[in-house]
Write a protein that binds this DNA or RNA. Structure first.
Lengths: 182, 182
DNA sequence: GGGGCCATGTAACCCGTTACATGATTGA
DNA sequence: TCAATCATGTAACGGGTTACATGGCCCC
């Protein structure tokens, strides 16, 4: 599923500019399971416009740059739904953090701690953020996905909490030795 | 972190051929958080060899194709450890399945069921697989990562179990109506 | 004054995927 | 007989990232 299709999907949730679409990938509902940068979104939107999948309205704002808000056309909506008829591609996960933790033995204790704590903080903040969102009258799919995200971040934050010392204990000892020798 | 570095990492676990490295990404310890295809592994290995990060031994086997087993050199090991000194890049997740589930309303009930069940089966099988592996005398990092994977797959498989009906109930009703109308 | 947010876009580059090419052996 | 596993590699193609380019406003 390319960025074009993803943009179509985002636009089913309401009209948006390229900048706003980006934010949905960074902080919004898609943040947990997808991402896209400006360099892919703007060209995608241009292509979508040329193909008639979206239309655009330009707003000039005072004190802010002009804004191009895109709307899904009926053709675009149909194309998105058609895309959903094809089977989903396998998930793709690339966690460099996991690689680092896997090779914890090769890291200096301080760096291990830094990597671990930053990673844990990320899971924890995502968990509390998602837990703060109310379970309002969202469509079922979105409710399910929200709960999925909550479960994901909460379980893993808790796992990391529970096992921090297992990893760190030994590293701290190694660290203490190293520092004593310094 | 590119495939070259990942190959170096895999080779710290023991000598391996390109084919075997691929398997570690597909089924082995890295399956949960990384992937790489032949088209990237073989060229990476060639480059690594040219740069002196690995050396190679060729084994001719009877009844099987010849095999090139790569070993990490000291330079290669040092390069890998040096790479680990740099801060890890953010995780990248691309879950098309989540997109499909997010837009559950746009899916036909049968397809929603198919996507959901296949996804659930995947989590369930990964969970039982990881639960089956003993917590032997692995290095701490690898134990931590294994537990992390277990927690990941188990919590999400359970979440999906617990919420299947929330998603499917409504879809089944829609389906029943559709079928009645057919 | 400086950093961050709003806002849009372009272009080069790189990395990796997909598909192709080859071929013997083993088990269903 | 057909599919799968073992095993290595190449080439084209595509997609997306990174970096660049621009600029005003607001808050500290």
């Amino acid at each position: 599923m390319d960025v074009k299709t993803l943009c179509l999907g985002v636009l089913t949730l309401g009209d948006a500019s390229g900048y706003e679409i980006r934010k949905k990938f960074e902080e919004g509902p898609f943040a947990a399971f997808y991402d896209a940068s400006y360099g892919s979104i703007y060209p995608a939107l241009a292509k979508l416009l040329a193909d008639g999948y979206v239309s655009v309205t330009e707003y000039t704002q005072s004190g802010k740059p002009a804004k191009k808000v895109y709307q899904l056309t009926e053709v675009g909506r149909a194309a998105f739904i058609a895309e959903l008829r094809t089977p989903p591609a396998p998930d793709r996960i690339r966690s460099e953090h996991m690689v680092y933790l896997f090779f914890a033995d090769y890291l200096e204790p301080r760096q291990l701690t830094a990597v671990f704590d930053a990673y844990h903080a990320h899971f924890e903040s995502m968990a509390t953020f998602l837990e703060g969102l109310g379970c309002d009258d969202l469509p079922l799919g979105r409710q399910f996905v929200r709960g999925f995200g909550r479960t994901f971040y909460r379980s893993l934050a808790d796992y990391m909490d529970a096992h921090r010392d297992d990893l760190m204990g030994a590293a701290a000892k190694r660290g203490a030795e190293t520092e004593a020798a310094e």
